[in-house]
């Protein structure tokens, strides 16, 4: 519990998920406080995206509890679920822009269809959000396929923040970008989260990105969170898994276990 007895913004307890016989999440416990920026690090295919999708309600966990603002979301019916969804913004790994719609309508999509806003008004807000992520208003009339990878990520970011969400999720926001564009995106994320006063849950395997946007870092390995701490503590974590990961060494406990499995 944080100050004044407020429940954590996001709280996961013993969340498990398997696909067929493959155990992906094996008891995830995580609290993210209001206004905090938490980053989950970990190797590819370790279940980072699955964790995020469980919180978002896109994947139903096999067991365990997930609470948003103190209310259980795993058992919710559709109407309550929509209500919770409206608090969320999500930047997908591949952007996930709707390629049949122009850029501005992508950004305005949740406003028009989710919040029933007037199209003209939503158009104007969309253009402002496009400017807020450092692009010109004229980009609004292009189609997603006409944009470069970095531009698509920025539009994905604009779409995620368009509804002024209370909680924003970032799925590998810098993967596939050059280091400079990655830094631009990191700055944008840090700025957007601060401007909105939002709570953020991000996943990445890019350590530069993690250090820049995180208040709290936690590492996932074999379906569990094995270490949690602040960015400062990261370099002296005393955890050999974390050490191997942040230094990107081929030799170490992570790969030893993987080879044995």
């Amino acid at each position: 519990m944080s100050e004044a007895g407020q429940p954590p913004k996001i709280s996961m307890r013993n969340v498990k998920k398997s696909f067929g016989t493959k155990k992906v999440l094996n008891g995830i416990d995580l609290d993210v406080e209001k206004g905090e920026s938490c980053v989950i690090i970990g190797g590819s295919g370790t279940g980072k995206s699955v964790t995020l999708k469980c919180v978002l309600g896109l994947i139903r966990p096999d067991s365990g509890s997930i609470k948003i603002d103190g209310s259980e979301v795993t058992e919710m019916d559709n109407d309550d679920r929509d209500e919770v969804m409206s608090k969320f913004g999500m930047l997908f790994q591949g952007g996930a822009l709707f390629d049949s719609l122009p850029v501005w309508e992508n950004v305005a999509f949740g406003l028009i269809h989710g919040r029933k806003m007037d199209r003209e008004e939503a158009h104007e807000i969309a253009l402002q959000k496009i400017e807020a992520v450092g692009m010109g208003r004229q980009v609004g009339s292009l189609y997603p396929a006409e944009l470069s990878g970095g531009m698509q990520k920025r539009i994905g970011l604009a779409r995620a923040i368009a509804g002024n969400p209370e909680i924003i999720f970032f799925d590998e926001p810098t993967t596939g970008l050059d280091p400079i564009m990655a830094d631009v995106i990191n700055d944008l994320i840090a700025k957007c989260v601060k401007d909105l006063g939002a709570t953020a849950l991000s996943i990445t395997h890019d350590m530069a990105s993690a250090r820049k946007i995180a208040d709290k870092i936690t590492m996932i390995h074999e379906g569990k969170l094995i270490w949690t701490g602040s960015v400062k503590e990261l370099d002296n974590s005393g955890n050999e898994y974390v050490d191997q990961f942040i230094h990107g060494r081929a030799e170490g406990p992570i790969t030893k276990h993987a080879n044995m499995a």
Binding site: M85, A96, G110, R159
Partner: peptide, 11 residues
């Protein structure tokens, strides 16, 4: 993931 994106936008 465009179908997931629809759902996060409450559609």
């Amino acid at each position: 993931e465009q179908i997931d994106a629809l759902r996060t936008l409450s559609v």
